[in-house]
Write a protein that binds this DNA or RNA. Structure first.
Lengths: 217, 217
DNA sequence: CGTTGCGTTGAATAAGGTCAAATAGAGTGG
DNA sequence: CCACTCTATTTGACCTTATTCAACGCAACG
């Protein structure tokens, strides 16, 4: 988007290669030397940071067309672990090449900056959720967020499979897995969603949005 | 750092201008059209995002030499409010110019990318704090983080004035102001810090680090 | 001085966390 | 194909932590 035909040819020079990552494997580890960023082509990832005392926190989930690894640019080492939640494919985008070419191709430079900025805004949204929403609101907002991202990728917004466990959802939301489970059950009782293990159907998106505190009461 | 003499000359073309922002005034508002990023020269800022229902969350505090406004690049509108906590000075860095020149000056491009990446990593650290630390740990970690940032700027690491209220600290940490106040009192009883209103003296940094869960118990 | 905003402290309460037990699936090897 | 195992999930009971509500103190300022 926003780049010309000849610019596209330059893009080919990015010599993007592909890589398979099996479920449970790391795409990269914290402190790994940074060389590339990664575009998810298929599959699902989580990124986790771990504290000195061993606790870890999931800082994001990544689905196709999303970019991972920009955490590594600042220190030239990755600042989190990236783990595949299912068998996945990524494009490896060598960062030195990307910088070189984006210096020539204005549209690419712009796109890349926007991408990084959106990651910042996304994280700030997560901070808002963690800092000022109650458990019920977080879980509702989480489901709506997933829904929106699925629909943007051509999948159903109201019918999808969770790729992560209750514990992983809890880690991302700053809750215990039991709390997540209870809220799923509660939303089901209230006919907002239908839960069948990892399979979620959203029955009442407006109701969920209300539960997320995103609508007038 | 990392840029040559002739590159420095190019930098002058950034035609950086300055701006005063008085205590309580906004440097920018959410949804303001994005044109520039800002380097804090003197003073102190907070950035806040607000939810649909009016609640707001402080997503960061900014002190001299830190950069604000990168949240606006992605959508070309700012995603948060930036408010001065005391009379402050900023450098206005026109973003179009910055992109133009950083395309030519390799060192500048690199520095800018690192800056954005560090902002991502910083936010992920905040997410970890909000998601997986207890109130006591958050407050201790907050004080240590401030201390580190002060010392990096040539101020005392153990003797400083808070520029923000208890309520603002609470908002940033996802706690109520009373909880913050109680923990300050508790740390004082434990001789970890000395609190006199907004004036903080860190008496036992190792003890604080332990309270932050950053050290072996 | 009275006012106002900020900070501290106490008591009661509610929200989530912790612990424990039961259940349900998915995958494995016979 | 079935029994078995292991892990993920659900649910209940109880407990801890932090919030809420309220009162009071303090300092700055007109």
């Amino acid at each position: 988007m926003g780049i010309s035909r000849e610019e596209v040819e330059q893009l080919d020079r990015l010599v993007v290669t592909r890589k398979r990552v099996r479920r449970g494997e790391n795409l990269y580890y914290t402190d790994d030397r940074f060389h590339s960023i990664y575009a998810v082509r298929s599959g699902f990832f989580k990124s986790t940071v771990l504290a000195e005392d061993g606790r870890d926190q999931i800082t994001g989930f990544y689905m196709p067309a999303e970019i991972m690894g920009m955490d590594g640019i600042g220190t030239e080492r990755h600042a989190c672990d990236a783990v595949a939640l299912e068998n996945s494919d990524v494009c490896i985008i060598p960062f030195a090449k990307l910088e070189e070419i984006s210096a020539k191709v204005r549209g690419l430079q712009r796109q890349f900056h926007k991408l990084m900025s959106r990651e910042i805004v996304r994280d700030q949204g997560a901070m808002m959720m963690l800092g000022s929403m109650r458990a019920e609101e977080r879980v509702a907002a989480f489901l709506l967020n997933l829904s929106q991202r699925f629909v943007a990728r051509g999948y159903s917004p109201s019918d999808f499979n969770l790729r992560m466990t209750r514990e992983e959802i809890g880690s991302f939301l700053g809750l215990q897995l039991e709390t997540v489970s209870r809220l799923f059950s509660r939303f089901q009782e209230e006919r907002l969603i239908d839960v069948q293990q990892k399979h979620i159907r959203i029955l009442n998106a407006a109701g969920l949005a209300r539960a997320a505190g995103q609508e007038p009461c």
